[in-house]
Amino acid sequence: MDMIELMYQENILDHYKNPHNFGKMENATVHHHEKNPLCGDELDMFLMIDENKKIVDVKVHPTGCAISVASASMLSDEIKGKSIDEVKNMTKEQILEMLGIPISPVRLKCALLSLDTLKNSTLIFEKYMRK
């Protein structure tokens, strides 16, 4: 398998074509929209968070390339059922490991849009909790 086939392996393309937890949420605790200005990839993330700061439901609505959509889809699976504290410090490395494919430096932004969206969602949530 060459690099490109490794990158666009079936798993990634499945997530791209049928993203998990796809859609929008009416009464989300936090809804955050993030855009990658360089390439125009966009992601809407909706989190339903209970009183124990647990993410009980998540919806993602990505538009963009296979890498950014697959990353959003996989991350939505990853964080569902976890607490905000568990996910707020997730790292770039964890995302890359989750994707499990070689990502060139120029595509890093695509891969990490989901993480940026998640981080900003958790920040918004914590700011709101403090009030």
């Binding site: 060459d2 690099m3 490109i4 990158m7 666009y8 360089l38 390439c39 125009g40 990839d41 963009g64 390339c65 296979a66 890498i67 060139s104 595509r107 695509c110």
Partner: peptide
């Protein structure tokens, strides 16, 4: 069914350099 970035990335694997994106014309 394919985003322009992915088109560009796969073309690159064949040595073909094109541009993908909004081309500074949002």
């Amino acid at each position: 069914g394919v985003h322009a970035h992915d088109v560009s990335q796969i073309l690159d694997s064949e040595g073909v350099a094109i541009r993908a994106g909004h081309h500074c014309c949002m």
